[in-house]
Design a protein around this nucleic acid. Structure first.
Lengths: 193, 193
DNA sequence: TCCTTTCTTGAATGTTCATTCAAGATACTC
DNA sequence: GAGTATCTTGAATGAACATTCAAGAAAGGA
């Protein structure tokens, strides 16, 4: 008997970062070895192949982001304030120009869109799940009387998500903090109007 | 003496489509051969290498998109109506789920961001140029009294562009026409409010 | 302490790919 | 119509890559 030596979560987070900064196709096994510290054999033993590593990394990313998202919504503050804080954190993430600036879901969706239906489904489903989480928050905001009852929570969630996508792409060309904050501010205003 | 047989613009448009549907890294020379009808030797003779082909395709894309954009702004109609028509055309393009749905600029920016500074600069500059074209339209809209004079044209252009980016990404997960049209409609309202 | 089981290692493998190049084809010039 | 310059062709090349595997290392059980 002998247990695996590596920490699965750490390895997956390293792999996530590698995929986010270089993309899946441009990340070689050597890059992965450098990032994770694991030799090819171990990777193949644990995740079957490079694609399997991406699938596992996507799942870990989902878990991490869901946990992170929940932490932005403490019940002692209003949902709308929390949404604002969350949006500001997205901007902060965009500004801190490290390789983690992209979203692994959208990046993978973009790269493997037409070529890998399973990955397309996984990423689409996860983004839809995030959208639903947002819709739940808007529904809650109605109960707190922060937004009008006649508003459609699902539409608001879609629009907010669209804004985040846009913000992220925009940040790749203009990483100027002031500009990004201004855009986020208007997005927030427009959604909560 | 002998002239080249192929039509450079046609070849570049075929290459553009190949790169947009599969991405740069995932498009092999065989794919390019199939798409353009040109054998490797001819490609290398005309564009130096695969990357050179991308650079030429990016330039052609810019030219094509600038021409297309101008056609959306006939002077016999109001700028705001033209902007609306343009936005609707973006949605239509997203819906017609063919491989041309993505924008070659953002796709290339996403894929080669950290690895190729020259391509990063080219794509960023071209997107900034597009943003300026939008700002000009908003400035013009002020003169037509369609938007308030105190509005900042540059901010409006950035926000509008952010919306287009978001719309395009959103369309990859939800290509439902009604939803996309609704999002575009609100974007238009929010910008012109 | 030794044995067995499992994990780790990294060189070897075979494939895919961008790129090259020499032979062949074609159009233009004189 | 012959000669030449240029373009086209596609097989050959070599590099990079994902993947495999057999040998070595380490941990737990007896």
């Amino acid at each position: 008997m002998r247990n695996a030596e590596f920490d699965r979560e750490k390895v997956l987070r390293s792999a996530m970062n590698a995929f986010m900064s270089k993309g899946f196709a441009n990340t070689s096994m050597q890059d992965i070895k450098k990032a994770t510290g694991l030799h090819p054999g171990s990777i193949y033993c644990a995740f079957e192949n490079k694609r399997g590593l991406l699938l596992a990394a996507l799942e870990q990313y989902r878990l991490d982001k869901e946990t992170e998202f929940k932490q932005f919504f403490p019940t002692n503050k209003s949902v709308t304030d929390n949404l604002k804080t969350y949006l500001e954190s997205v901007v902060t993430e965009c500004i801190s120009c490290d390789n983690t600036q992209a979203c692994l879901m959208t990046k993978s969706l973009n790269e493997t869109a037409e070529q890998d239906l399973e990955i397309q489904k996984i990423t689409s489903d996860n983004l839809a799940r995030f959208q639903q989480a947002l819709a739940d928050k808007f529904e809650q905001a109605k109960k707190e009387n922060s937004i009008a009852l006649e508003k459609n929570s699902e539409h608001l969630a879609r629009y907010f998500l669209m804004g985040i996508y846009g913000l992220r792409t925009f940040a790749q060309t203009h990483p100027e903090p002031i500009v990004l904050k201004q855009l986020a501010e208007q997005l927030y205003q427009d959604v909560l109007r």
